[in-house]
Simulated scan of single mutants.
Amino acid sequence: MTTVSDAGIDVISRQVMPPGSRLMLTARLKVTTNGPESTVDLTGQLHRLVSEADVTEGTVHVYCGHTTCGLLVNELDAGLETDTGQALERLLPHSGRHPYRHDKDRTPEERALHGERDNGHAHLRAVIATHPELHVPVTKGALYLGQWQAIMLAEHDGPRTRELLVRVNDDLSHPA
């Protein structure tokens, strides 16, 4: 598994909402992954979006609309990435070494639509090791993360270009 800093992340759209709205900012991120299994650190880009939204207390919602990658919060550490990759390989071996029904039972039409790449392992790894969406608190104008925590996209079927939806909400703009 390889780590990519936020250099592979582009903001493809951004809209700052008018004052008084609970939704303060919405953005779409294009994330380019560089290997079959890789992790992209989203934390820096999300910090920048929170700062731009000028939210003191609120939440960041990140949504990943893909089925062979997903989001996670954990320590961004090369050793941990290696350990995770090895554990996932033991639990869910690559499709080339295991006959997943997802891969083997495809019709010619499904293969034409989805491509020839066998990726049953990537779907299952995304199911057990990641989430399609995350909600992260914002407090005192910053993401509320533990000392070692980072927000990451984990790719299990790359290299690919992925799109994420990010929304920054303000908990103080509307009284309870």
Rank of each mutant, 00 (worst) to 15 (best):
P36H: 08
P36K: 07
P36Y: 02
P36I: 00
E37W: 07
S38L: 03
D41I: 15
D41L: 13
L42P: 08
T43Y: 14
T43M: 12
T43G: 07
L46Q: 02
H47L: 14
H47I: 10
R48W: 05
R48P: 06
L49C: 12
L49Q: 08
V50K: 02
A53M: 05
V55G: 03
V55L: 10
G58T: 00
T59S: 00
Y63N: 14
G65M: 14
G65P: 12
L72A: 15
L72I: 05
N74Q: 14
E75L: 15
E75T: 12
L76M: 13
L76W: 09
L76F: 14
G79H: 14
L80H: 13
T82L: 11
D83Y: 09
T84P: 01
G85M: 01
G85H: 01
L88P: 00
L88R: 01
L88E: 01
L88W: 03
L88Y: 04
E89F: 00
R90K: 04
R90I: 00
R90S: 03
L91P: 01
H94S: 06
S95T: 15
G96H: 10
H98D: 01
H98R: 13
Y100C: 03
R101C: 09
D103I: 01
K104I: 13
K104P: 01
K104N: 13
D105P: 04
D105V: 11
T107H: 06
P108T: 09
P108L: 09
P108W: 12
R111G: 01
A112Y: 00
A112K: 02
L113R: 04
L113C: 00
L113A: 05
E116N: 15
E116P: 04
R117P: 12
D118V: 08
D118A: 11
D118H: 07
G120P: 04
H121P: 01
A122Q: 03
H123R: 06
L124S: 07
L124K: 06
L124C: 11
R125Q: 11
R125C: 12
V127G: 10
I128L: 15
H131Y: 08
H131W: 05
H131M: 10
P132S: 13
E133L: 04
E133R: 09
H135W: 03
V136C: 05
V138C: 09
V138L: 06
G141F: 04
A142L: 11
A142R: 14
L143H: 02
Y144L: 10
L145C: 13
W148Q: 13
W148M: 09
Q149M: 15
Q149R: 08
I151K: 00
I151P: 00
A154G: 03
E155H: 08
H156T: 00
D157A: 12
D157H: 07
D157Q: 06
D157K: 06
G158T: 09
G158P: 02
G158K: 05
P159L: 15
P159V: 10
P159H: 08
T161L: 11
T161K: 11
E163F: 10
E163Q: 14
L165P: 07
L165W: 08
V166G: 10
V166D: 08
V168Q: 03
V168N: 07
N169L: 12
D170W: 00
D171G: 06
D171F: 06
